[in-house]
Computed example of a mutant assay.
Amino acid sequence: MRTTQDLFSLKGKTALVTGGSRGLGLQMALALGEQGAKVVISARKQAELDEAVATLREHGIEAHAIAADLGREEAVEPLVDGAMAHLGQIDILINNAGATWGAAAEEYPVEAWDKVMNLNVRSIFLLSQAVGRKSMIPRRTGRIINIASIAGMAGNAPGTMKTIAYNTSKAAVINFTRTLAGEWGEYGINVNALAPGFFPSKMSAGVLKSIGEEKLAAETPLHRLGGDEDLKGAVVLFASDAGRHITGQTLAVDGGVSAV
């Protein structure tokens, strides 16, 4: 019987993390690497990727980077092929790349809607499909972790955010996770989602500034926002054999906001 140390270990595993150059993506890449995984991170900006790879390597993690704009369909296949060239295979896929746009629903630009939905939903489908076909389905094993949001579980309170496309896209990610888990369970592929609450990041900076970090923290049952280590345990659980009997689930990591 394996110990919990064995179950949570990712030694010998490989991972592709999109949106991995900073914020939550980099935090998750660090967590996987700390458990022994080899990591490829992807984002649009090469300079940010280079800094992130340096950080990962400082922690003793074998890491590589591939610049890719996943809002473009033609970027998907080269990213998967490039990741497999570095890794040999992809055991773990973290679909973290995403975008948001704030505007009132009655004035929401169609091009903004398309941009958010294209990156937050369509690219996740295309990348999961490509990784499934090329690496996971043939080997009958894999872990896919989609990054949703508690914004996909509810609307916005009056006077707060106006992010109809973002909320809609993250709700779609949650049901995409359930549906893909049902279809790909026969291939030994686990598909789960994490739904972060408020974590200080470049994407959330506008919301945090307009509402206020102190106010948001005060309205959270644990009276704090997410920090630099708060996604690590959850992503390792879903990526490792410790979570091998968990699939189709969405775990909120939000200090209790979605529970009240």
Rank of each mutant, 00 (worst) to 15 (best):
M1S: 05
R2T: 07
T3P: 05
L7F: 14
F8T: 13
L10A: 09
K13N: 11
T14Q: 03
T14G: 05
L24F: 04
G25K: 02
Q27M: 15
M28F: 01
A29C: 11
L30V: 13
L30Y: 15
A31R: 05
E34D: 12
G36K: 02
G36I: 02
A43F: 08
K45A: 06
K45F: 07
A47E: 15
L49D: 04
L49A: 00
V53M: 02
A54M: 10
L56H: 08
L56K: 08
R57I: 07
E58M: 14
G60P: 13
I61M: 10
E62S: 02
A65T: 03
D69N: 14
R72T: 09
E74R: 05
V76Y: 09
E77D: 15
G82Q: 05
A83K: 06
M84R: 10
A85H: 12
A85R: 14
I90P: 15
D91S: 08
L93F: 02
I94K: 02
N95H: 12
N96I: 03
A99C: 02
T100S: 13
G102Q: 11
A103L: 06
E106M: 13
E106K: 14
E107C: 14
E111R: 12
E111N: 14
A112M: 08
M117L: 13
M117D: 04
L119R: 01
I124E: 14
L126T: 09
A130Y: 09
A130Q: 14
G132C: 09
G132K: 08
R133W: 03
I137N: 09
G142I: 01
G142D: 07
R143S: 15
I144W: 03
S149R: 09
M153N: 10
A154I: 11
G155T: 10
G155P: 15
N156D: 12
P158R: 00
G159K: 03
G159V: 04
M161S: 12
M161D: 06
T163C: 00
T163W: 00
A165P: 15
Y166T: 01
T168R: 10
K170Q: 09
A172R: 04
T177K: 00
T179R: 10
L180I: 00
W184Y: 14
G185R: 06
G185C: 05
Y187C: 05
G188I: 04
I189Y: 08
I189W: 06
N192W: 08
A195M: 08
P196K: 00
P200R: 12
S201R: 00
M203P: 12
S204R: 01
G206A: 01
G206V: 01
I211E: 00
E214N: 08
K215V: 13
K215P: 07
A217N: 11
A218P: 11
A218D: 12
P221C: 01
H223L: 10
L225V: 13
G226R: 09
G227T: 05
G227S: 10
D228Y: 01
K232D: 03
G233Q: 08
A234G: 04
A234R: 01
A234E: 05
V235M: 02
V236Q: 04
L237W: 02
L237Q: 06
L237Y: 13
S240V: 14
A242C: 05
R244V: 08
G248E: 09
Q249K: 13
L251A: 04
D254M: 03
